[in-house]
Design a protein around this nucleic acid. Structure first.
Length: 958
RNA sequence: GCCCGGAUGGCGGAAUUGGCAGACGCGGCGGACUCAAAAUCCGCUGGCCGCGAGGUCGUGUGGGUUCAAGUCCCACUCCGGGCACCA
């Protein structure tokens, strides 16, 4: 370990500022020196148990492992604003604190550098995305480094680096070569499936004999099983962007979320990922995760698992199939509603209704999805004139069409149970359809709605549908199905499902809202697929030895865009034009042959689906991560919890990734787990969502943002250039002209002040508004703390070797106790407040005792590491304090001999008494009643009751 | 429409299982230093009444439980986020 750096000279602030005052200039001097020291010293390099970064000796000196991860940034050309590093500062403090607790902490940072924004920026400026991305990454690295984050820089990655995306492609290859074995409940290698087909142990779904199939036919069959497959699925074609966008990238009104261009549905050959195979496990394993209930709920809702039944209603046009979560209510199904686009509508429609149906379908087709699904509008529909047979009652029920039923969801048809569903009830009342009761509502329900109780099927007086548990009535068909009298929905569902299955009318079904993941993009700036097609158009993944498939150089990286309204245009990827690259001769095991490369690239999510694992073993060129290294850092902590799934110990990031990123990463991780490549079942054991930094933004009368830094506050409002402007609070961002750069803060206050300010603003998980003028508070705190230890005129240490007073010791140890607890729980705002209190106490001491200053310096170190290192060095210590033990509170100093208790009379504080900490209740009571103001308030009246809460307070009930 | 959060001084926020509301910071006021200002330092700072001792009101609104409610329960208002007729 090298020696601590020495300051060159005293810094100089304003004319008569003492030369060794903690000014912004001195802070900068200190910060740059210590950042250089940490780099040279390798202070934050973390040893691995195996592989290139293994260091057995260093590892032996460390305690338990801790893997802390930030959601890595997408480097934009405009650089960081002070909102970006909020979470990074939090994780850095936590890591520094845990290092001082002896943990072996892995903490690094990478860059998610592929993606459409870089490509679009490059298109706008005419520069290659590789160049603009590299510049943005360099700027981000500088800004983050200047913040003093304790990253292990050897472990940093960029998703655009071929050495990184080689393994992204390898994982794609692995997923392509896998299938989901429902019986085993896990993914297996595709060769095992082929072996089963070859041996005749598994039949083809369509009954053909495997041995009679040609190779391309076999490949077609296998594509039905593979976890990555090409599908001729409907996609969202956006001619204005020249690319296909995912469902989740389309806004509610059917436009692209980037650029706001129209989006059209069209069919296209696309790579898909079979994430739906993991629907159950993605839901069930949420129970193993230390995430907030809010995020878990969002994932559950997105996956949308609902258990119910598929039911077939016979009709003249063939069976109409619906999915229902409430098959137990089939006896109340008195009509059906189909989407206007449903393929059976034509056949069901009678001659009399043909004109009305045609008109309605035309009307529905012209509506946007948002209008069709607008809940505030009245439901419309028309009868087809056709009927279907309710399979449990045998009754003919009318079939309607209505635009609120969407072809894209479920089967595009529903059964309507008007007595138990408000939407169906409204529809039935509007169009005069039958509403027989199938449950007997309780008496209170009738009185609650001011109507006379009815029984039997009559619902004519009901104002609304009855939704709730109640005994079934009219729910028996004399053919083996009888629910009458039962009031338990679960058993009603189970009984009905069994009957449907036994009689061939349907079966129990689990339905997911989750769809397979559209995994290809017609763009340039992404990972190329490691896929080639042969003369039969069969996809082959290239062997591992041919990875990475590098993104070819080109100057024409823009997607070809079209008239945004031209729905009939054909997508063309930038890679399509590079024929030298597309047409390739390879030997895939049966001699050199000509192939055509896949010209799609992967979506931005790909690189972020596994990046945490590359931090573990960034230079490994044999494997994406060494197995022993993965197990050390991410293996299940079964000693902590028997069902611990493994994964990152703490993952911090914004709630905007609650669904997509987290779900995709979990899916990839589970595939890798099933195939034995990782020991952890889940990538992120604990998730913490940080808040956002908000900032005032101002709009002028044209509704255009004005530069927030130029706005003047007056008593009568806000003004820009003398004109009134309106205030709008929101996320900080370049487009709102309210960004504050960290560079500005480094220059005016220093990184330590910025770190403290961001943490002191409020709890880490809460959004809070930025106020530049408040930053000075933390700057003053550091100045006072510095002055307590250092003579501002000479720069010499100004501590005494005296033992601290009893009072000071108690304050110190109470602070140690509180700060350690608060830091361990990520409550840095209150940890800072406790340190300020201690420092304010120390300020009152002439020459503060060394023991107090040393402990205070160590406690400050995670929060404001540079000034702490400098003080530690001035206190005569060699090297960095980063691995010094965090101070430990002496329990004896946490308890006082005497305590002051508030005394209430009827709940209002009337006085205070000082008693021995271990005083018995009757002594406390006597003291309380004797207190002057208490006695006066009681005015001689005898108290009815006295409540003594030991150590807390006394309440006298008069 | 449904679901999930949230609402505390002029501002950001603090407050174990219900137990002294307003820690800490900003701002404001007063003072020290200075020719003066800035910076820095010290003190005060929820509203109202009172010379004071003290009293009184007070955690979005209205009820309730309790010796005691920011905290628990019921109803409501507003703000933020998520979902979108999910069958």
């Amino acid at each position: 370990m090298s020696n601590a750096p020495t300051p060159e000279t005293a810094s100089h602030g304003a004319d008569d500022t003492p030369p060794f005052r903690y000014t912004a200039a001195l802070a900068q001097d200190i910060e740059l020196r210590w950042q250089a020291f940490w780099d040279d010293d390798g202070t934050f390099e973390t040893p691995n148990p195996a592989g290139p970064l293994a260091d057995a000796e260093a590892l032996a000196g460390r305690g338990d492992k801790l893997f802390v991860l930030d959601m890595f940034p997408y480097p934009s050309s405009s650089g960081l604003h002070v909102g970006h590093p909020l979470g990074y500062i939090g994780t850095d403090i936590y890591c520094r604190f845990q290092r001082m607790q002896g943990r072996n902490v892995l903490y690094s940072m990478g860059f998610d550098a592929f993606g459409l924004p870089a490509e679009q920026y490059a298109v706008r400026t005419g520069q290659h995305p590789a160049i603009t991305t590299a510049e943005a990454v360099t700027n981000y690295r500088r800004q983050l480094h200047r913040l003093g984050l304790s990253h292990d820089k050897r472990r940093s990655i960029e998703t655009t680096d071929p050495d990184y995306y080689k393994w992204t492609q390898w994982i794609f290859r692995t997923i392509f070569e896998a299938w989901y074995d429902d019986a085993a409940g896990k993914a297996r290698h595709i060769d095992e499936l082929i072996a089963e087909f070859d041996a005749g142990d598994r039949a083809l779904p369509d009954g053909r004999a495997w041995s009679t199939l040609s190779d391309p036919e076999k490949e077609q069959v296998l594509a039905e099983y593979r976890l990555a497959y090409v599908s001729n699925a409907p996609v969202n074609w956006c001619p204005g962007l020249g690319t296909v966008v995912a469902n989740e990238e389309v806004t509610a009104d059917g436009r692209s979320d980037r650029g706001n261009f129209p989006v059209f549905k069209r069919n296209m050959r696309q790579w898909m990922m079979r994430i739906t195979a993991y629907g159950d496990r993605l839901v069930d394993d949420l129970d193993l995760l230390d995430w907030t209930d809010a995020i878990k709920t969002m994932q559950r809702n997105w996956i949308g698992r609902s258990e119910g039944a598929t039911v077939h209603f016979p009709s003249a046009a063939g069976p109409i199939t619906v999915f229902t979560t409430r098959p137990d209510t089939l006896f109340g199904a008195t009509f059906m509603v189909l989407a206007p686009e449903h393929p059976l509508v034509d056949e069901l429609t009678t001659a009399e209704q043909a004109a009305a149906v045609a008109a309605y379908r035309e009307e529905a087709a012209a509506k946007k999805e948002i209008d069709r699904t607008d809940d505030t509008k009245a439901k419309t529909g028309v009868a087809t004139g056709g009927t279907a047979t309710n399979p449990v009652t045998g009754e003919e029920i009318p079939v309607w069409i209505a635009d609120y039923v969407l072809m894209g969801y479920g089967t595009g048809a529903i059964m309507a149970v008007p007595c138990g569903d408000q939407r169906d009830f409204d529809f039935a009342r509007t169009y005069g359809l039958d509403i027989p009761a199938i449950q007997q509502p309780p008496a209170e329900w009738f009185t609650g709605h001011d109507i006379a109780p009815t029984d039997g099927a009559d619902t004519s007086t009901w104002p609304i549908a009855y939704v709730g548990d109640a005994p079934y009535i009219n729910s028996s068909n004399g053919d083996g199905l009888d629910l009458n009298g039962t009031s338990d929905v679960a058993s009603g569902v189970a009984t009905t499902n069994a009957w449907l299955e036994a009689n061939g009318h349907g079966e129990a079904t689990i339905n997911f809202k989750l769809r397979d993941w559209l995994f290809s993009r017609q763009r340039y700036w992404g990972e190329p697929f490691p896929v080639v097609y042969d003369e039969h158009d069969v996809a082959h993944v290239v062997p591992e030895s041919m990875l990475p498939v590098e993104l070819p150089e080109t100057d024409s990286f823009s997607p070809r865009t079209f008239d945004p309204d031209d729905a009939d245009s054909d997508p063309e990827s930038p890679l399509d034009r590079l024929t030298d690259w597309v047409d390739v001769t390879l030997d895939l095991g049966d001699g050199p042959k000509t192939y055509r490369r896949d010209t799609n690239v992967m979506p931005q999510w790909a690189g972020s689906c596994w990046y945490e694992m590359r931090y573990l073993d960034p230079t490994n060129d044999e494997r994406f991560v060494d197995a022993a290294v993965e197990e050390y850092w991410m293996g299940p902590q079964t000693d902590e919890r028997p069902d611990h799934p493994g994964g990152v110990d703490l993952y911090v990031g914004g709630v905007e990734h609650a669904v997509l990123h987290l779900l995709y990463a979990r899916f990839w991780h589970k595939v890798l787990y099933d195939l034995g490549h990782v020991s952890s079942k889940e990538p992120y054991a604990r998730l913490f969502n940080q808040g956002y930094i908000l900032a005032d933004a101002f709009k002028d009368e044209r509704e255009i943002y004005v530069d927030a830094s130029e706005v003047e506050r007056r008593d009568d409002g806000y003004f820009h250039d003398g004109k009134p402007v309106t205030l709008e609070v929101g996320k900080m961002g370049k487009s709102k002209l309210n960004s504050v750069s960290p560079d500005e803060m480094y220059e005016n206050y220093g990184a330590d002040t910025l770190r403290l300010y961001e943490m002191a603003m409020g709890p880490l998980d809460q959004s809070r508004p930025w106020e530049t003028r408040d930053v000075v508070g933390m700057y003053r705190f550091l100045q006072r703390l510095w002055r307590n230890a250092v003579d501002e005129d000479t720069g010499a240490l100004a501590v005494s070797d005296d033992a601290p007073s009893d009072e000071t010791s108690r304050v110190l140890h109470r602070t140690i106790d509180a700060v350690a607890t608060e830091m361990d729980n990520l409550r840095f705002n209150t940890a800072i407040a406790k340190l300020i209190e201690l420092n304010n106490h120390v300020t009152k001491i002439d020459a503060p005792p060394r023991a107090v200053v040393e402990a205070m310096t160590l406690m400050l170190a995670p929060l404001a590491p540079h000034i702490a290192e400098e003080l530690w060095s001035k206190l005569g210590h060699e090297g960095s304090l980063s691995h010094e033990p965090f101070p430990v509170a002496d329990p004896a100093l946490l308890v006082d001999d005497t305590i002051e208790l508030p005394v209430q009379v009827n709940g209002k504080v009337r006085g205070r008494v000082v008693v021995a900490a271990d005083a018995p209740n009757d002594v406390i009571e006597a003291a309380a009643l004797a207190e002057e103001n208490v006695a006066r308030t009681l005015d001689g009246a005898a108290p009815k009751k006295v409540i003594v809460v030991p150590g807390r307070m006394v309440n006298v009930v008069a």
